[in-house]
Each structure stands twice: as structure tokens, then as C-alpha cells.
Amino acid sequence: MANFFDDFGVPFESQLEHDVRRGRRYIMYHGTTLTAAYHIKNHGFQRSSDGMLGPGVYVSRSIQKARVYPIILPFNEQRAVLKLRVRVGKVKKIDYQGHPLQKTWHQHGYDSAWVPPNCGMVPSGLEEYCVWDPSRIEVLSIIPGCC
């Protein structure tokens, strides 16, 4: 199995295990519209009703992934990326379509679900998280018209 490294050369999977044990936080990103970014900064995230990993807030450690969202940009809007601090808690790795806990991981005691890079679930090949509880996410900044 190939290792995928962060900007400091630390394998994502070993870093993830370290963070879960020690309760550390990740810097992550969420792509949205500039209007929605200000709303989220002022009022917090709301859990989506569904998605590839079920309900939750979808974020990534990859700014490249976040910067292309929303895929369809509404008229008279611009993209923005929220820079976040996220406490991932207990994480379930979901690395193939049809995984038995793909949409039910939270019901089994997990705080977040993680799709690793290049596992075939995300067309871009970039990793993705789904965080159940929005209070685990702190907005650090808004990057308008990012990237």
C-alpha cells in the first residue's frame, strides 16, 4: 500500500493515528461560495443531510480539493475556501464504495469518516473527511476567490 504524505513528509495514516490518540487537530479546508463562507463563519457549520459518507460536514486537508467547490457556481457568486481547525476524534477509514459503515460510521461510535487518497472513491484522488459534529470545527479564516 502506498503512503501519502503531508507537507512535512509525515504519512497521513500515521499522522491520523497519532492525532486520534493525542486529540490533536488538523488544519483543513472547506470550499463554498463567499456568501456561504461568511454565513458559516458567523453562525457555524450545519451538518448536511446526506452525501458519499452520509450526513456531516465535508472537509479535506487538501486545499486543492476544497478550492473547486461548489462544482456548479451560482450566478453572481465567487468561490471561497474556509481554513479550519478540526478535531477529528475517533476516525473510521472508508476506502471502498459499499463499505459496510460507509454511511453509518457515526452510529458505530466514530466522530469522523475518512476517505484516503487514491482509493477510488473520489474522482480527484484526493482525500476527504466527513465530521459528524459541527462543533468540532473552528473557522480560522476565509480565503476569497481562492486559488
Rank of each mutant, 00 (worst) to 15 (best):
L101P: 12
P100T: 07
Q102C: 05
R22A: 07
D111W: 04
V88H: 09
T32E: 09
L82P: 13
H18Q: 14
I94K: 08
N42K: 12
S60G: 01
I142Q: 14
L82N: 07
G23Y: 10
A80V: 05
K83Q: 11
T104R: 01
G145A: 14
C147E: 08
M52Q: 12
I137T: 06
Y58S: 08
G125S: 01
I143D: 11
V20R: 15
H106Y: 13
P134L: 12
G125V: 03
G98D: 04
Q78E: 15
R136S: 12
G89L: 09
P74K: 10
D6F: 02
V57M: 08
G44L: 05
N3I: 00
C146M: 05
F45W: 07
R136T: 00
R22N: 13
P144R: 13
K90V: 10
G9I: 09
Y69S: 07
G23W: 09
C147Y: 14
S135N: 06
S49C: 03
N76D: 15
H43Q: 08
Y26D: 06
P55H: 06
E17V: 07
W114Q: 00
A66P: 03
A36H: 14
V91P: 00
R67S: 13
P55W: 01
R87E: 12
L16N: 03
H18R: 14
R67D: 07
G23P: 02
P55T: 02
A37C: 10
I40L: 02
P70Y: 13
S112A: 13
I63Y: 04
I72G: 07
P117G: 07
R79Q: 09
Q97Y: 11
C130Q: 06
G98H: 04
